[in-house]
Design a protein around this nucleic acid. Structure first.
Lengths: 102, 102
DNA sequence: GTGATTTGGTTTGTATTGCAAACTAGTTTC
DNA sequence: GAAACTAGTTTGCAATACAAACCAAATCAC
């Protein structure tokens, strides 16, 4: 019974800003809030909310510290986050490549 | 100024069910409502709503007719819809393939 | 010093969405 | 002709996404 070719897409990752954050973090390992804000061109408010959601899902860690006297928030992916991203990408391929079977 | 690597993703296509519909229609040209319902495993209500949105966007056409005495709704992509899908896929690649630059 | 500005974020409010339950219209079965 | 099924739409609610408003602390202007 083949009629179920579309795997569910992780709703946490299937959103532009969160996906962009994951994408950035995959390339740089570790990024500060302001860097993510630049790269994604998101507002701080939106970014803050989405980072918290990714943290709650265990996809990334948020570390609050100080750069000198200025507060600084750093983010890094967890293994769980990396795995989730890979699963998501794999699932998504099915949607993006129609007519794969001859 | 390179800090804008993430193109916006067409919000109409960046949704699981609508994307699945587009994907199915790309492979079969023309599909009836019930076939789409099977393939996507969506509820009829949800499918109906999403098809209407895609139609309003000009991404597909909805043709209502009869198969014998039974009403039958057929859907087919428009060139606009196909183009939108391709644009979406291209934009999305940027998110899915981190670290593409050496 | 003290008021204004900037930096680095968080909270809150709202408008939009996604979705399924409930409904409508007609057909077939018994 | 009532019950049950097919084909699809409408409606109502719960969850999201997002930005405006806000807060705290540091720095700048004078």
């Amino acid at each position: 019974m083949p009629p179920a070719p579309f795997d569910d897409l992780d709703p946490l990752l299937h959103q532009q800003l969160r996906l962009a954050v994951m994408s950035v973090l995959l390339t740089v390992q570790d990024a500060e809030f302001t860097f993510l804000k630049e790269q994604t061109t998101a507002t701080a408010g939106n970014l803050s909310v989405q980072l918290t959601k990714l943290q709650e899902a265990g996809y990334l860690t948020i570390t609050k510290g100080y750069k000198g006297k200025v507060p600084q928030t750093r983010c890094a992916l967890t293994p769980v986050g990396i795995a989730a991203f890979e699963t998501y990408v794999t699932a998504l391929q099915r949607y993006l490549q129609p007519k794969r079977d001859t």
